[in-house]
Nucleic acid binder design. Structure first.
Length: 416
RNA sequence: GCGGAAUUGGUGAAGUGGUUAACACGCCGGAUUGUGGCUCCGGUAUGCGUGGGUUCGACCCCCACAUUUCGCCCCA
């Protein structure tokens, strides 16, 4: 038997319906914020992610699906959404007319080669959005607002925004150096992973789970102290806006994000203080890094699968309709043609209708009626059809009524 | 890449080193029924993740691999 690949999933049945419902809410909300839907290719030139996401990140070093196509092109299945959208922005020269910010959202499959675990697969979905062209904190506030409220619209009321500022690139570099200088003499007090982090990504030491309670971490320099005046003032301004917009946030000076391109605002959305359900931030240099002009950007991505998990775990009720309106049964083969015709007629008039296509016994057809949770059913028989009528039975009340075939659609419409 | 747990039919699962692998649900057929839903009868795994090994003999013991699942790293 050929089976699905590790970390991939077939989505069907109730799960598919849930996603359709969630997608609809997210798309509708994006529309209100005036973000437009975009689709970009699943695979891109490998270089896009190497330069965009960062050559030294683990994501690029050991988690991408890299391959060569038959033309020897080095390609990569996208591990995240932002780089592709930035590529699109540059390639289509949307920076040529920036009279208004360019705002787009996506809802797409991403690919990372990693060990599957709860809320994490090799093929997974991210819903995300990006805003180009505004460096005003209003755009930071807008993006955070859209991210935050998306969860609330999905029924997760207790979400909280964790917020931090990395400052501009200069501030960040300065902070990084002082962090290394601070930890280096105490390297043996850190856990093994952190000793490795000190070389590769010292900022991540700050959110280490093992060392979190150690004094050495608690007393480490804080990035907010390293912000220059401009960065500090915009961070303060952002908080004022979030207060005004009634967004539940908390400054977390330990919050560091894994991708290289972030500066200034970074944030994550958490539920009940457990792991993040999504994250984002500002990337003012990324467009230029990838060959475009100097245009600022900010964006967010939701971990769709783990958000769906959270929705389930928190008992949020998602309406799933598994019932049909009408099931048409027939007593013998002579009514088959009428069944085919009538079923289509109902369907084309907006009624969810089903009939038997297996030539089952009447008893079996009745079982189907219940399995499909049909609201009404009609048993076709020659006697009724001779009079151009059918008997429509309400499957709940068991009340039945003779209806002329020509009036059937109207009758069902009226009773539903 | 590292570690823990799991892997029996469409589903939930019981099970023992040795003839025909429980039970339940579901599904199919039949009886009964004014056109079902209750009840009754019957049917439903050439098979116990895959490949090796131990044994006279393994679903049950050992090894490897795969997959699932939960963690770590990482990400979100």
């Amino acid at each position: 038997m050929i089976t699905k690949q590790k970390g991939t999933y077939d989505i069907y049945g109730d799960e598919a319906k849930k996603r359709a419902y969630v997608n609809d809410i997210l798309a509708t909300l994006c529309e209100k914020y005036n973000y437009n839907y975009i689709e970009t290719p699943v695979f891109e030139a490998s270089e896009l992610f190497h330069r965009g996401v960062g050559e030294t990140t683990d994501m690029v070093q050991k988690e991408t699906y890299d391959f060569k196509d038959r033309g020897e092109r080095a390609l990569t299945l996208r591990p995240e959404g932002t780089a592709s959208v930035v590529r699109w922005f540059i390639e289509n020269k949307l920076y040529g007319n920036m009279s208004d910010p360019v705002k787009v959202f996506y809802n797409a499959k991403m690919y990372r080669y990693e060990r599957p675990q709860s809320g994490r697969n090799r093929e997974f979905t991210q819903w995300g959005f990006e805003c180009f062209g505004s460096d005003d904190v209003m755009s930071d506030a807008e993006v955070i607002s859209l991210a935050y409220n998306a969860y609330r619209f999905l029924g997760l009321d207790d979400v909280k925004v964790k917020l931090n500022s990395l400052g501009d690139t200069a501030s960040r570099m300065k902070y990084r150096e002082s962090l290394i200088a601070y930890f280096e003499p105490h390297i043996h007090e850190l856990c093994e992973d952190c000793q490795e982090r000190l070389k590769k990504n010292p900022l991540r030491i700050l959110d280490c789970k093992v060392d979190a309670e150690k004094d050495i971490i608690k007393k480490a320099p804080v990035i907010l102290d390293y912000l220059n005046e401009e960065s500090a003032s915009r961070f303060k301004k952002l908080q004022e806006l979030l207060d005004l917009m009634d967004i539940n946030y908390e400054v977390d000076d330990r919050l560091v994000r894994g991708l290289d391109y972030y500066n200034h605002t970074v944030f994550e959305i958490t539920l009940n203080d457990s792991y993040a359900l999504g994250g984002g931030g500002r990337y003012n240099d990324l467009v230029e890094t990838l060959g475009g002009p100097s245009i600022s950007g900010i964006g967010f991505a939701m971990g769709y699968d783990r958000t769906l998990l959270a929705i389930e775990e928190n008992g949020v009720n998602i309406p799933i309709n598994n019932s049909i309106d009408v099931y048409i049964l027939y007593v013998s083969d002579t009514e088959k043609e009428t069944a085919a015709y009538l079923t289509q007629d109902l369907r084309l008039n907006g009624i969810i209708a089903e009939t038997d296509m297996l030539g089952k016994s009447l008893k079996s057809q009745f079982k189907s009626v219940d399995r499909f949770q049909a609201k009404y059913y009609i048993v076709l028989n020659d006697d009724d059809l001779k009079n151009n009528e059918v008997v429509v039975k309400d499957n709940k009340t068991k009340e039945e009524e003779h209806v002329k075939i020509n009036d059937l659609v109207d009758y069902i419409d009226m009773h539903m």
